[in-house]
Simulated assay, not measured.
Amino acid sequence: MVTSSSTKLVFFACFVLFTFSDTLVAGESDKVQLNLYYESLCPGCQRFIVDELVKIFDSDLDTITDVKLVPFGNAKVSDNLTVICQHGEEECKLNALEACVINTLPNPKLQYNFIRCVENYTKNWESSCLNGYGDEKAINACYNSDLSKKLILGYAKQTSSLKPEHEFVPWVTLNSKPLYTNLDDLVGQVCKAYKGKTPLPKICSSSALSEWKMSKLEFSYVDETINH
């Protein structure tokens, strides 16, 4: 028969384990909401996705961060709902593909890994990225149907609804506030933006932050004309 004192001891041990665990994850409402508004084939976007966002997913920073990718960027939508992309038709195709990846794969890390692969291998993504990252059949079904355009038009609406309006891409917001050009210290900015009760991830320690900074990015501006 379990004694009262034994029950209290077990309860206390569980409480201590829950409170001080290094793997605690912040509640959804406490997480820093990081939104990346971007377009494929934009050099600054590619570099940010490949070299910068990886710091979120390859560290314990993902325990306090909710990443949302919005693949539309500086594209335009005509009156007849035709999408015109800054870097041409190939960008439109890759934006649609990545919209389908986000729609098909439920796990944010899987979404990111697939999209990072595409942005890293834009010329041969089919041979490099389709196998091993997710549901190839479902992604292709989405991409080859009207769903891909519906998703892109949804991202167009999200992008056009930004307050303040985006000026360039990559455009990053933390808890709905734009970082503007201060993207070289993403890790430090996320750590600073977190206001939840869960202890800060180890990467947020001041001794580590300097190792996670990068040089300035190249931006693609809204009204910039790109030669294809």
Rank of each mutant, 00 (worst) to 15 (best):
R47I: 02
D135F: 07
S161E: 15
C117Y: 06
I102P: 12
N80Y: 01
D51K: 14
A96C: 11
V70D: 00
A75N: 09
F72N: 11
K123E: 14
W171R: 02
Y133M: 02
P108A: 10
L61Y: 04
S148G: 07
G44F: 07
V172F: 09
C92R: 12
D66E: 13
N120D: 09
D135N: 15
K163H: 14
S59G: 07
C92L: 09
D79A: 12
T173Y: 09
A96S: 14
P106N: 12
Y112L: 11
L53Y: 03
L147Y: 12
L162A: 08
K55D: 15
V118Q: 05
A99W: 03
A141V: 05
Y38R: 11
N124M: 05
F48A: 10
L130P: 00
L97V: 06
Q111T: 05
L174M: 08
R116M: 13
K157W: 04
E136G: 00
I56D: 04
K137D: 13
K68D: 08
E119Y: 01
N140F: 12
K68P: 00
D58Y: 03
C45K: 08
N140E: 09
E119R: 03
T63K: 15
L69A: 04
C117P: 06
L105G: 02
D146W: 01
P106T: 02
Y133T: 06
L174W: 02
A99I: 00
K68H: 13
C100Y: 07
E90L: 13
L174D: 04
Q46P: 00
L130F: 12
E52Y: 02
E39Q: 11
S160G: 03
N80F: 00
V172A: 11
H87G: 01
S40Q: 07
F57P: 03
E167C: 05
V83A: 05
I152S: 14
W125P: 00
D58C: 08
T65Q: 02
V169Y: 08
T65V: 07
E98S: 04
D51W: 01
G154Q: 14
Y155I: 01
F48Y: 15
Y133E: 10
T82Y: 04
P108M: 09
Q46M: 13
D66P: 00
C129Q: 11
G88V: 00
V70P: 00
N140C: 05
K55M: 14
K123R: 14
Q111S: 09
V118R: 07
C129A: 07
Y121M: 03
N113M: 14
V118A: 10
D146G: 11
N175A: 10
H166W: 05
P108D: 01
Y112E: 09
